[in-house]
């Protein structure tokens, strides 16, 4: 058994140095989007109590946290890999270093996970300041982590497969952006027509937002959503592994 955490640290050292040098920029860019959602939806369009029986602000904030974990995790990871592949060809050298492929994959997610986690925690703190319904538990950080890692792994896939910057942007606008609005983040997917609802239900962000909401509002443990998120995590990981081992990037 090798020490995967040591290897992940070795792989991500450069990215961690980068984050350390740019903490303010990292935080601001990770937070502007979610804060706008908070203002526009939780306040601008606030609609009183939801059918779930909680204040809309308390309902929306966990959804916004889920959005934030997805966009930060996905974007930071995908962009970094694309740049490393296309503009300074260092990704090829990374693959050559004597580290396990799993360490490489998870090592490359670190930049997304760190950004995502920071965003999630700050949003939760802010949310607790705005409403009394939000709670913290021992599950809070693990569920944030699960969500950030899953979407960062998707970021690895996109970063590996994109041939150009615009391809990546295209993927973000046809996959990531629709999920942002539809996956039960800002309103319950029950409001959608049945057929759409079923498709949306299958998407990872739906489960990320369900799970985060359940824990943040102290509801029952959302085992199904956790299970499905874990399945997505494994699938994304296996895809990344396949792409790297077969040199399909």
């Amino acid at each position: 058994m090798y020490n995967i955490f040591s290897e992940i640290w070795r792989i991500s050292y450069g990215d961690l140095c980068f984050i350390k040098r740019h903490i303010p920029e990292t935080l601001i860019s990770a937070l502007v989007g979610p804060l706008l959602y908070l203002l526009a939806f939780a306040y601008g369009m606030r609609s009183g109590d939801t059918e779930a029986g909680v204040d809309y602000v308390a309902y929306a904030i966990p959804g916004i946290i889920a959005i934030s974990s997805m966009t930060s995790g996905y974007n930071a990871t995908a962009q970094k890999i694309l740049i490393q592949r296309l503009f300074h060809t260092s990704f090829d050298e990374l693959v050559l270093c004597p580290m396990h492929t799993s360490s490489l994959i998870f090592g490359k997610t670190v930049i997304g996970v760190v950004r995502g986690l920071l965003g999630c925690i700050i949003l939760l703190g802010l949310g607790m300041f705005l409403t009394d319904d939000l709670v913290i538990s021992i599950w809070t950080i693990p569920i944030f982590l699960l969500s950030c890692v899953t979407f960062s792994l998707l970021g690895v896939t996109a970063g590996l497969l994109a041939k150009t910057g615009p391809t990546l942007t295209l993927f973000a606008s046809v996959v990531i952006l629709p999920m942002t609005f539809l996956c039960g983040t800002l309103f319950s997917i029950d409001a959608l027509p049945d057929i759409v609802k079923q498709i949306i239900w299958a998407l990872p962000l739906s489960h990320s937002s369900t799970a985060i909401r359940s824990f943040c509002l102290g509801w029952d443990v959302p085992w199904v959503s956790i299970g499905i998120l874990l399945i997505y995590l494994v699938v994304f990981y296996l895809m990344d592994r396949y792409i790297i081992l077969k040199k399909l990037y």
Binding site: F18, R21, H88, T89, D92, L96
Partner: peptide
Amino acid sequence: IIQQQHSLDKDI
């Protein structure tokens, strides 16, 4: 290996 295009991380 030193590649034709330099492969350093320019931001650090």
